[in-house]
């Protein structure tokens, strides 16, 4: 038993194993509390809800790794979704051809990327604080979105985009597949590319990284640029799932993305954190969210629980660090 545990820990790392055990406890707990929890319907709905949150979390993760934050993620996603909606609407709405969809997706990705790029340039080259820059970008994008939509919903899209939000491929929900691809891509970027490596390093010490010959300004710019691209992807998935776009949709996700990153072991000061544990943390949060929902918890109570949970996670990490240091 002890040996198996040791083996598992070596394979996965202590943090992933801890999260895995936590997940098992949560699943068993809700399984007993609500018979519907382990039903196919509930598992299915979780699988469709997770991706948009997951994509936004990936967009939040890399800026945190570099010691920053991107507060504009949800509105970047909204504006990108709006771009796609606009292209579809101006090409016939419900009857828009697939070519319009392809162009719309490219335009949406371009808009999200551009928003990220602007933030990245200001943060890296001007040296302004990431919290401020992303905050200002968020206010601007929200204003832009409200200006364009006058606060309303945009809907009426062609039938064929529905599967992106609702369909299955080989029995797996398509949005989940998109998240899976994005997560694997992010994992490869962070663990196997020069850019990812540089992002970790500058998160720990930007000057020492620059002295070692890394183009830190370009790296930082790209971090926010890619973050914007990922937001755009989330915006597209959101559009297809709700069959509409509303500016402000998913506003509450910011907290949960930050929570997922910290629950997944990301260092709030930057430099350390991996994709896999963060995805595990996301699954846990989704399970918690669905479970609370099934138990009849109010949406606002859930918000409060997330806030308290974030504090609890940080306090437990603090206790953990103190304990670990004493041993050392």
């Amino acid at each position: 038993m002890a040996k198996t545990y040791q083996k598992l820990r070596d394979m996965l790392g202590a943090e992933v194993l801890g999260l895995l055990m936590f997940l098992v406890v949560v699943v068993i707990g809700f399984g007993f509390a609500s018979p519907r929890f382990l039903s196919a319907a509930n598992l299915g709905s979780m699988a469709f809800q997770l991706p948009e949150l997951g994509l936004l979390t990936l967009a939040m993760l890399v800026p945190i790794l570099t010691g920053g934050l991107n507060l504009a993620i949800t509105f970047t996603a909204n504006i990108s979704g709006l771009t796609l909606a606009w292209v579809l609407q101006s090409n016939g709405g419900v009857d828009a051809p697939t070519s319009a969809f392809v162009i719309g997706v490219i335009a949406a990705l371009a808009v999200g990327t551009l928003a990220g790029f602007v933030m990245g340039v200001v943060i890296a080259y001007v040296g302004a604080h990431p919290i401020l820059v992303s905050l200002a970008m968020m206010i601007f994008l929200r204003g832009l979105g409200e200006f364009l939509t006058h606060g309303g919903d945009i809907s009426g899209f062609p039938e064929y985009i529905q599967p992106i939000g609702h369909g299955f491929f080989l029995g797996i929900p398509i949005p989940l597949l998109i998240l899976l691809f994005a997560a694997v891509g992010w994992h490869l970027m962070l663990s196997r590319t020069r850019h990812g490596f540089a992002a970790y390093m500058l998160g720990s010490n930007i000057e020492a990284t620059r002295y070692s010959g890394i183009h830190t300004k370009r790296t930082l710019t790209l971090v926010y640029t890619f973050s914007g691209t990922m937001c755009a992807l989330a915006g597209i998935v959101m559009l297809s799932r709700f069959n509409s776009v509303r500016v402000g949709h998913g506003e509450a996700y910011i907290l949960i993305t930050v929570l997922a990153c910290f629950l997944g072991g990301v260092d709030p000061f930057g430099g350390f954190g991996r994709v896999f544990p963060v995805v595990m943390a996301l699954v846990i949060l989704q399970v918690l969210s669905s479970g609370l929902n099934l138990l009849g918890a109010n949406q606002h109570l859930a918000t409060a629980v997330w806030g308290l949970f974030l504090i609890a996670v940080m306090v437990i990490r603090w206790i953990w660090n103190r304990f670990a240091r004493k041993q050392y």
Partner: peptide
């Protein structure tokens, strides 16, 4: 929370923002 548990203030206040608001609305 910031001083005793050494949590950065943006994280603490994002959390208390949601805790305060959620509980109030609830």
């Amino acid at each position: 929370l910031i001083h005793y548990f050494r949590i950065i203030s943006i994280v603490v206040t994002i959390a208390t923002f949601n805790a305060f608001f959620g509980l109030l609305m609830f």
